[in-house]
């Protein structure tokens, strides 16, 4: 079997600044991997390169035997890599349900004129979109809010809607960018359960960025640590916790004067 997902020596330079340097990793189907590091370490930049939002200065992203490095964002999504955003980016003027339905639009077979003239093929597809979207909302515990405007949701609900929306693109790899940011401990615990459940149910591979150490350590099987764009450690949660480089990156060097 070939590689499921591989990032091969990704480099991202902004002017003279190297945001990410030689980032490499592979993912096996069904894995749950975490990416951690101090602020400004380049974590989100890695996500942006994988999803096509940035074109890496050098290096390649391989997805199921295909080089997707220079594909536009929407085509990468269509190939089965979905993401959520660190700073929530919902479609605020749309309802919760519509937010999820947008994600299913890229799979639509009906042409625009079939939609305009209300052909039965379109109506059938529309009905399926509606039902499936409601399923995803149910999954994330948002079904009762389906007709609300996305902007009127509470913070934690907005985060969950981001996940529901990403799920609706039917990904095989899901990238979560700080899904627990701003959540209280109870919500964070519930979220961890949800993420586990989603992986099980949809057979997802999940790659996530998170600052909440308890969340990451409890959930992920494997963790990568970035600092100033350089991968400084990789391993199981237990290994990472003991790694002196990681401790140094987070807490600074111990000075023995």
């Amino acid at each position: 079997m070939g590689t499921f997902f591989q990032a091969d020596r990704l480099v991202m330079q902004f002017g003279g600044l190297t945001a990410v340097n030689e980032f490499s990793m592979t993912l096996q189907p069904g894995e749950l991997v975490g990416l951690i590091g101090p602020n400004g370490a380049g974590k989100t930049t890695v996500f942006n390169m994988i999803t096509g939002a940035y074109t890496p200065t050098s290096g390649d992203v391989l997805w199921q035997e295909e080089k997707i490095t220079r594909l536009p964002v929407q085509l990468i999504t269509a190939r089965g890599i979905a993401r959520t955003f660190q700073n929530i980016r919902l479609f605020n003027d749309l309802t919760v349900l519509e937010n999820v339905m947008v994600s299913m639009h890229h799979k639509i077979r009906s042409r625009f004129w079939e939609a305009m003239l209300g052909f039965s093929r379109y109506r059938e597809e529309r009905r399926r979109m509606y039902e499936e979207s409601m399923d995803y909302l149910q999954e994330m515990g948002l079904a009762h809010l389906a007709e609300e405007k996305a902007s009127s949701l509470a913070y934690g609900q907005q985060r969950r809607l981001e996940i529901a929306r990403a799920l609706a693109t039917r990904p095989r790899l899901l990238l979560l960018d700080e899904p627990a940011a701003g959540m209280n401990p109870l919500e964070t615990m519930e979220l961890a359960e949800m993420v586990r459940g989603l992986r099980q149910k949809y057979g997802l591979t999940i790659f996530l960025i998170e600052h909440d150490m308890k969340f990451v350590m409890g959930l992920c099987e494997r963790i990568k640590v970035l600092d100033y764009g350089i991968t400084i450690a990789e391993g199981t949660p237990a290994e990472i916790q003991k790694n002196p480089d990681v401790i140094k990156a987070y807490l600074g060097e111990q000075k023995n004067a």
Binding site: Q74, A82, R83, H105, R165
Partner: peptide, 17 residues
């Protein structure tokens, strides 16, 4: 409408602007 609200997010959800 998704493009209107947030083009970056719309693209990430598979919409071709």
């Amino acid at each position: 409408k998704a493009i209107r609200d947030d083009e970056t997010a719309a693209r990430a959800m598979g919409v071709d602007p």
